[in-house]
Write a protein that binds this DNA or RNA. Sequence first.
DNA 1: GCTTGTTAGTTACAAAATCAACTATTATCC
DNA 2: GGATAATAGTTGATTTTGTAACTAACAAGC
Lengths: 150, 150
Amino acid sequence: MTDAKNAEKDTFDLRNFLPFLLNQAAEESSLEFQRVYKNRYGMLRTEWRVLFHLGIHGEMTAKEIGERAKIHKTKISRAVHRLEKRRYLSRTRDERDRRVERLTLTPAGSAVYRELRGIAESYDAKLAAHFTKGEAALLRMMLRRLAGME
Amino acid sequence: MTDAKNAEKDTFDLRNFLPFLLNQAAEESSLEFQRVYKNRYGMLRTEWRVLFHLGIHGEMTAKEIGERAKIHKTKISRAVHRLEKRRYLSRTRDERDRRVERLTLTPAGSAVYRELRGIAESYDAKLAAHFTKGEAALLRMMLRRLAGME
DNA sequence: GCTTGTTAGTTACAAAATCAACTATTATCC
DNA sequence: GGATAATAGTTGATTTTGTAACTAACAAGC
């Protein structure tokens, strides 16, 4: 019985465990891009996510961003504050429901967004170049399914 | 000139951007499993990672774990402390090189590892069931490649 | 053998994330 | 229409992470 010795090898393979693989791939693939928005614009991850959502969808509320990106409202709130302080976004109260705030990028924020979007696009292409076109499309589809984004 | 109005929609699709998809899929897929080691054993993510590495490979040093899992040494150090306090692992100085510490799971730690491994395996199967066998194998391969684990 | 450089791991301090409680506003229901 | 519940967003306290500087042990060059 090999049970007594607990410093033995085991047959479970972490290298095939999907949550682990997803995490490693996610971390590896966001590192390089992170350096850009971090070093060049002093932005945090949540901040560029908010920026991207606004850049893509135009006017949004904090809540909508949180739902789409699955980010907690306190993180959003703080990211919005920082982006506002840097004058990348502006907020206006919705007069129909004075609890909500409508967020939009300022021209400066839009400019940063466009620059980062360009970098993001070429970075995405670089990642996808690891695979054939069909494989890459399949990968995106599978990831969307795992993320519950179908 | 659509440029003046910056609350317009954009053509960039975050839903196809690989770093974003990888992050969302990773987060979604680790949430359920996280609840198990968090609520049932009060463990943090780094702690179960260390536990798994020791469970799989037997005796290891902090440095080896950090290299394999790409975790920073300060995180490892703290995770090891907490696991030791909970008596899930024990350390012994390597007498040949007294800087290094050899880490192994205690019987209690091994028991927790085996329990979590079982849960991990069935959870992985559940995730993989979203796809055909061939797709799942391809997915693992692609993720390993993106993670630089080839 | 002694200075200089490396390496394994720890610790202290700053930054960020999490969780719970809070304010202000709107919706519900009697 | 007034009490109660729900919602958008904020704030403060606690926990966790990240960064840099640190200790202790070993290695290399001379």
